[in-house]
Amino acid sequence: MPRSQCDTESSEDLEPSCRGRRPKTSRSGRAGLIFPVGRIERFLRTGDYAERIGSGSSVYMAAVLQYLTYDIVDIAGNIAANDHRRRIAPRHLHETISCDADLQQLLGGIILQQAKATSKKLPAATSRRGKGKKTAHSVKRRRNGAVAA
């Protein structure tokens, strides 16, 4: 079974072409970001926003977008937790944007179609389990002693 030149264990008998090889890492991984740097760069270049676009601009844009997303989701998660919910609803996002002044200035013109007007929920009508209405039939049965407590 022939062995490949780069499969050997020690580094001293490697050829020079195999010695400098490193595993491919994405620019997002190198920058420590979750948002895709390459995709954002592609959108910047195809969008004709500027004649020239620097190589660090897409990394910076991805970092800013990731920070804003984290901030919005964090605040919306806190609002959802205060509302005793485990999922973030569009209403929580709308409330997040409307409560924060900086986010309101940045995203104030955005309309979330599914977000309903924020209002305080009225407490639900209390159920009267076990305490049914007194009817004429039940009152007669109690007077006659048919129902013993």
Results as ranks from 00 to 15, higher is better:
Arg141His: 03
Ser119Glu: 09
Thr118Gln: 12
Lys24Gly: 01
Ser58His: 00
Ser98Arg: 15
Leu65Thr: 01
Pro23Glu: 12
Arg86Val: 15
Lys134Arg: 09
Pro123Thr: 12
Ile72Asn: 09
Pro23Asn: 08
Gly20Trp: 04
Thr8Ser: 12
Ile79His: 02
Lys24His: 10
Leu65Gln: 04
Val147Tyr: 02
Leu107Pro: 03
Arg22Trp: 06
Leu103Ala: 00
Asp13Lys: 12
Ser11Tyr: 07
Gly130His: 05
Glu95Cys: 07
Lys24Val: 04
Leu112Cys: 05
Ala148Ser: 10
Val59Trp: 06
Ser119Cys: 14
Gly56Trp: 01
Pro123Ile: 01
Ser57His: 07
Arg86Ile: 13
Asn144Asp: 14
Ala148Cys: 04
Pro16Arg: 11
Lys121Ala: 15
Thr25Lys: 14
Thr46Arg: 14
Leu93Gly: 01
Gly54Cys: 09
Thr118Cys: 15
Ala76Tyr: 03
Ala89Arg: 13
Gly47Leu: 02
Arg142His: 10
Tyr49Thr: 06
Ile53Leu: 10
Arg39Lys: 04
Arg39Val: 05
Ile72Ala: 10
Arg27Ile: 01
Ser138Trp: 01
Arg19Gln: 06
Arg128Asn: 14
Ile53His: 11
Cys6Glu: 09
Thr25Trp: 06
Thr25Tyr: 11
Ser26Met: 02
Cys6Trp: 07
Leu106Gln: 01
Gln66Leu: 04
Gly77Ser: 03
Arg52Ser: 06
His94Cys: 07
Gln104Asp: 14
Lys116Trp: 00
Leu93Ala: 05
His84Ile: 12
Lys24Glu: 03
Ala148Val: 13
Gly109Ala: 04
Ala50Ser: 07
Ala125Ser: 13
Asn82Gln: 13
Glu12Asn: 08
Glu15Lys: 13
Tyr67Asn: 07
Ser119Asp: 08
Thr96Tyr: 02
Thr126Gly: 06
Glu9Val: 08
Lys131Leu: 15
Leu122Tyr: 01
Asp7Tyr: 00
Cys18Trp: 00
Ile75His: 08
Glu12Pro: 05
Tyr67Phe: 09
Thr69Ile: 03
Lys131Tyr: 11
Arg27Gly: 00
Cys99Pro: 00
Ser17Gly: 04
Ala146Thr: 07
Ala149Pro: 04
Ala50Ile: 02
Thr69Ser: 14
Gln5Ala: 13
Arg85Met: 11
Leu65Pro: 01
